[in-house]
Simulated assay, not measured.
Amino acid sequence: MEDDKIPARRKILAAAGTLFTTTGYASTTIKAIAGEAGVAVQTVYFVFGNKRSVLAALLDTSIAGDDEPIPTLARPWVAEAIAEPDPLSQLRIQVHGARLVLDRAAPVLLAVRAAAGADAEVAQLWATTCEHTETVLRHLTIVLADKLDHVDVDRTVDVGLALLAPETHTLLIDERGWSPEDYERWVVDALAAAAGLEV
């Protein structure tokens, strides 16, 4: 039975991703998701239960890049950044990893944020996502501070949250035409400056 659910799950998430990021979460119905995915409405309910669960699963897989239940702090790119002894190299690794997450997830993150104002459950999902993002960034910044002197952890985290926000990523890459690589280099330079690290 589980094997039968995997293809349907992927189809539903792909369909939901298209609809949530174009027509919006509130305007998207389970029926519309089912139609876009080419599955029965009952299949969507069977696999996910409700629309909010579809959104939560889409957000999880967009951020992770897969269906594996591995927390961000246990992901290989985070471990590589933490293990890197050189502070600037750590920044480059962690920003690259974060940029790849945003390349996948920025449209979904913006859809969640847009829906949060009108739906209490989605607002909680957005709040949890923001807390998770800050936790990961703070952990990496504390690791960076251990390799440097006089790092203002709180300020560096605040700068990182602004630079790596889905709004910033979307503005510079999608609207202003920056390449992902240019955006990534800019984030590294700005975070290095915030940490007092010479590039």
Rank of each mutant, 00 (worst) to 15 (best):
I142C: 03
G49Q: 07
I12R: 00
H139D: 07
V188Y: 02
G49D: 12
I82H: 07
L19R: 01
D66V: 04
A118S: 11
L171P: 03
L109M: 14
L161W: 08
G97E: 03
R104E: 05
A98V: 11
L161T: 09
H150I: 01
P87D: 03
R155W: 14
F20H: 08
D174N: 14
A145S: 14
T133K: 10
T23M: 11
D119G: 08
W126S: 09
G160Y: 05
D103M: 13
D4K: 11
D174C: 07
V47K: 00
L137H: 12
V136R: 06
R75G: 04
A145W: 02
A56G: 08
V151L: 08
A26F: 04
W126I: 02
D66L: 04
E80Q: 14
L164H: 02
D174L: 09
T135L: 14
L59N: 01
I70K: 14
Q94V: 14
A74G: 09
K11F: 07
P180C: 07
T22P: 10
I33G: 02
F46K: 15
V95L: 07
A193L: 12
A120R: 09
K11N: 10
K147T: 09
P107L: 15
F20M: 11
A194T: 09
K5T: 09
G17W: 05
H132Y: 10
H150R: 13
L163E: 08
A81D: 01
E175R: 13
T156N: 04
D174Q: 15
A14W: 02
L137Y: 09
A123C: 13
A105E: 00
E36L: 02
E134N: 06
K51D: 10
G65M: 05
L144P: 00
L58R: 11
L137S: 11
I82E: 14
L19P: 00
T170V: 10
A40T: 07
T170C: 05
G38F: 15
A8W: 04
E134Y: 04
G117K: 09
V78C: 06
A34S: 08
A34Q: 06
L191A: 02
P85I: 12
L148Q: 06
H132E: 10
T29M: 10
A116N: 04
V199M: 12
P180Q: 11
D60K: 04
E2F: 15
R99M: 05
H150L: 02
V95I: 13
P76C: 14
F46I: 04
I93H: 01
L59V: 04
I33N: 02
G160T: 06
V101M: 14
A195N: 02
R9D: 05
D119K: 07
T61I: 13
A165Y: 05
L100G: 05
R155E: 12
T128C: 08
A37W: 01
